[in-house]
């Protein structure tokens, strides 16, 4: 039990896919201007990585190692098409916001990285836990970044104003607070992730690089 729960808990902190393994950064940065998009993206990755890891793990003994990358890509691409069609059917506006980034889950390095590093060498159950753990670790960072960018950038969370009304000057705005529109621009995602890494490594000195 201890070993299995480690599979889920490790990627959340000390072996986080984004801040430590440096995988799956592209989408983490591009779509985090709003909290809602970050959450949907995390759930999509959770689905693709959880199921994909199980599928690859079940097939691991029959995939010839020379063509394994193409096999993996086809498995991911199929799962991503399912996600894309579901999003288009039930959350059309959001799928417009995410645009090509849903498709880019295919080449999200987390997925290929976990297939290569874990699912090809472990059984389905453990692969499933590993997939869920890593997707959650990815989601945590996405949601933290999305939370700060939306809160500081437009003063809302999930589209609901939480800091008062900027036009009517209520809440925080009454004492002269202004939204920092800069947070909505893409470069700030990089800087926010940089700061998360800084905080994480300051707290756990073992992670510091030379």
């Amino acid at each position: 039990m201890g070993k299995d729960s480690k599979l889920i808990l490790d990627p959340l902190t000390d072996n986080n896919p984004i801040t430590i393994q440096v995988l799956g950064i592209c989408s983490a940065l591009a779509i985090t201007a709003e909290l809602e998009a970050s959450i949907v993206m995390s759930i999509s990755v959770l689905f693709v990585l959880g199921i994909g890891n199980v599928v690859i793990s079940l097939m691991r003994n029959i995939i010839p190692s020379k063509i394994r990358i193409i096999v993996q890509l086809i498995v991911v691409a199929t799962l991503v098409i399912i996600v894309d069609l579901v999003l288009k059917a039930f959350a059309y506006e959001l799928s417009k916001t995410l645009s090509v980034f849903v498709g880019l889950i295919i080449t999200n390095c987390i997925i290929m990285g976990r297939f290569e590093a874990f699912a090809l060498g472990n059984g389905p159950y453990r692969s499933f836990l590993d997939g869920i753990g890593n997707a959650l670790g990815y989601g945590v960072i996405l949601i933290i970044v999305g939370f700060f960018r939306e809160l500081l950038g437009s003063g809302t969370l999930l589209g609901i104003p939480v800091l008062g009304d900027p036009i009517e000057k209520t809440g925080l705005y009454a004492i002269g607070y202004e939204n920092n529109g800069f947070m909505l621009l893409s470069p700030m995602a990089l800087i926010v992730v940089g700061i998360i890494i800084w905080v994480q490594r300051s707290r756990n000195k073992a992670l510091i690089e030379d």
Partner: peptide, 10 residues
Amino acid sequence: ALRGLGITFI
């Protein structure tokens, strides 16, 4: 704590 990855991001 910023060495390597952190500073590259920033």
